[in-house]
Simulated scan of single mutants.
Amino acid sequence: MFDFWTVTSTLTKYGSYVGVAAVFGYATSAVLNHRLSTSLKVPAVTLSIVGILSIGVYFFLQVGAFADSGISGVFDKQLIEILLSTGNGDLLLWRVVGLGYFILFLSLTKTSKPPSKKLQLFILLPSILALVWSFTAVGHVADLSWYWQAFLVVHAYVALSWAGSIGPLVRYLEQAKKDEIHLILERYSVIGSVLVSLLLVAGIALILKLLIFNGNTNAIDYILTLSLKLLLVTVMLGFAAYHKFFLTKRLKQNKIDKADISRSIKKELYVAHLVLLITAGLTTLVGISH
């Protein structure tokens, strides 16, 4: 179960999720505050590069697994051509295009004079569409009807937007004045409420389809891992509520400073990355087909 190919595939898939989350999180952050800074731009580009490298390595790992001949098989020209014509090739194409476009956009954007919020989102739209579409290329719902794929797209976008926006939020808080922090958290909570609602609806729909409607209720490993993921998502929701209703109030009362809020939100960030890693494992180590 935990052989070289599956573990490495899980880690590289996680790396590609991190890159996609950087794009979605950046777009979400643009809604909160369209002013860019070097502290936000550089990490976004770096994580996007990590995403491109990860999806590239992931593709060649699939080639090697298909060849079943060890490391030497990852560069088998004939098998590479075959996999490029499959969903694995589509996944590679759409994700590289989406991440590459994003890197190009940020590279050409002047930090001192960023585009307006609406213009940023409009320019980033091709990148976002390419990346969300990549989730329909392979996996559990690749062969399902369009409406189930729509649930997956919404689920992927919302989850990765949430995970990807936590890092920029921490940077905003570190740079913001004390009297601005509660306003930033208010904006974030409004967007977060919408994202969580969409996440729950799409997630429940996918669980019903993959486990109940498809008769996979005996996929014990998958169910246990999924339960752990849901537990961690609940923890993230608890963090979000704690920040909004407790820490922000204490900040207004001068009982804590913004560094305390930043440290707490960083804990939410660690949980978010653990959720991404478990998601990568769900689709690799204990996929529904297992």
Rank of each mutant, 00 (worst) to 15 (best):
M1S: 07
F4C: 07
L11C: 09
G15P: 13
Y17F: 13
Y26E: 00
S29N: 13
V31M: 13
V31S: 06
N33A: 08
L36S: 08
S39V: 15
A44M: 07
A44W: 02
I52L: 15
G56F: 09
F59K: 09
V63P: 11
A67E: 11
K77E: 14
Q78W: 11
L79F: 06
L83G: 00
N88F: 15
N88L: 05
D90I: 01
L93Q: 12
G98C: 01
L99K: 02
G100H: 11
L104M: 08
S107K: 08
L108G: 01
T109R: 07
K110T: 02
K113P: 05
S116E: 06
K117W: 07
L121F: 04
I123C: 05
P126L: 06
V132L: 12
D143E: 10
S145G: 04
S145N: 02
W148L: 13
Q149T: 08
F151M: 14
F151E: 09
S161P: 14
S161L: 12
W162I: 10
G164F: 00
R171M: 15
Y188K: 02
I191E: 06
S193Y: 13
L200C: 02
L200P: 02
L200A: 10
G203V: 11
G203Y: 13
L206G: 01
T217E: 07
N218H: 15
I223C: 10
L231K: 00
L231S: 08
L232D: 12
L237I: 10
G238N: 00
G238H: 02
F239H: 12
A241W: 10
F246A: 11
K249L: 13
K258S: 13
D260V: 14
S262I: 08
K267E: 10
E268N: 07
L274H: 05
L277W: 11
I278C: 04
I278W: 01
G287D: 10
